[in-house]
């Protein structure tokens, strides 16, 4: 497995992106890029635009100006098939959002079968392998409502992985969890990172940022204030706002 291949052309390139909700500027001229295999952790106070930035990468949020290039394709170009492009962008939400009318296994197989034309048997086998990986193989035939939060989130990660995405986006994946369940989800994410997955993670888990991040991005008021390696960040942050935020959260 290639671990941190040297940066080539960025796989995600966000250039001068702005986005407003009414009078509120959620993103203010943000530029950021990620190379293949890179793990970027995005931190910042509530309302600083972290989710908006992450969600604009797969166009769940469409931006007002600027360009976003994913895997060589401009996501806003008329010729781009956004549904196709989204297959390469796995997303994990704070509130899991599993399909409650489907079993765990069906949650994983639905998209590969319908979107990639994968056969049932092949999809089932692939899904079981992924459930093994996130450690809940035995729950394959259970409905999501029967699972704990931590288990649901691990299924949600597996569901995103079932489409074999090139990039995984995580929006505060552990914020809705009871403290005792945070570890099991972070473990899965660390494992994924070690396998070389390209990841953008919005989180308040500084331990995870330290261990996994190649780069930490600090946002405030819709803008990127500071970015750098975890060492830089946690040992000598430059900006006052970064220092203040870190002192509050650590």
């Amino acid at each position: 497995m290639p671990v941190n291949s040297p940066p080539t052309a960025p796989i995600v390139d966000i250039r001068h992106v702005s986005k407003s909700f009414g009078a509120l500027k959620a993103l203010n001229n943000v530029s950021m890029s990620m190379s293949l295999g890179e793990k970027v952790v995005i931190i910042g106070p509530s309302g600083s635009g972290k989710s908006t930035l992450l969600r604009s990468i797969n166009k769940l949020e469409s931006v007002d100006s600027g360009t976003i290039i994913v895997d060589g394709q401009d996501i806003n170009a008329p010729a781009t098939d956004i549904n196709r492009l989204r297959m390469e962008l796995g997303m994990v939400f704070q509130s899991f959002n599993l399909f409650p009318h489907k079993t765990v296994l069906q949650n994983l197989t639905l998209a590969p079968i319908k979107l990639k034309g994968m056969g049932q048997a092949e999809a089932d086998e692939m899904a079981m392998r992924l459930l093994d990986k996130v450690g809940i193989r035995e729950k394959a035939h259970v409905f999501p409502a029967k699972l704990s939060g931590g288990q649901q989130q691990r299924v949600a990660i597996a569901r995103a992985l079932a489409m074999s995405p090139k990039i995984m986006l995580f929006d505060e994946p552990t914020s809705a969890l009871d403290p005792e369940m945070i570890g099991e989800v972070l473990d899965v994410m660390v494992k994924l990172a070690k396998e070389g997955m390209t990841m953008a993670v919005v989180t308040h888990e500084m331990g995870f940022a330290r261990e996994v991040a190649d780069r930490v991005v600090f946002m405030d008021h819709g803008a990127i204030v500071e970015e750098g390696t975890p060492e830089h960040f946690f040992q000598n942050p430059e900006h006052e706002r970064t220092k203040l935020f870190l002192s509050q959260i650590l």
Binding site: N58, M91, L98, R159
Partner: peptide
């Protein structure tokens, strides 16, 4: 969130609605 999850997997509006 259900719509968002479906769309993020690559389903179009129609598939999201019916599936």
């Amino acid at each position: 969130g259900q719509t968002e999850a479906a769309r993020s997997l690559g389903f179009n509006t129609k598939q999201t609605m019916f599936l």
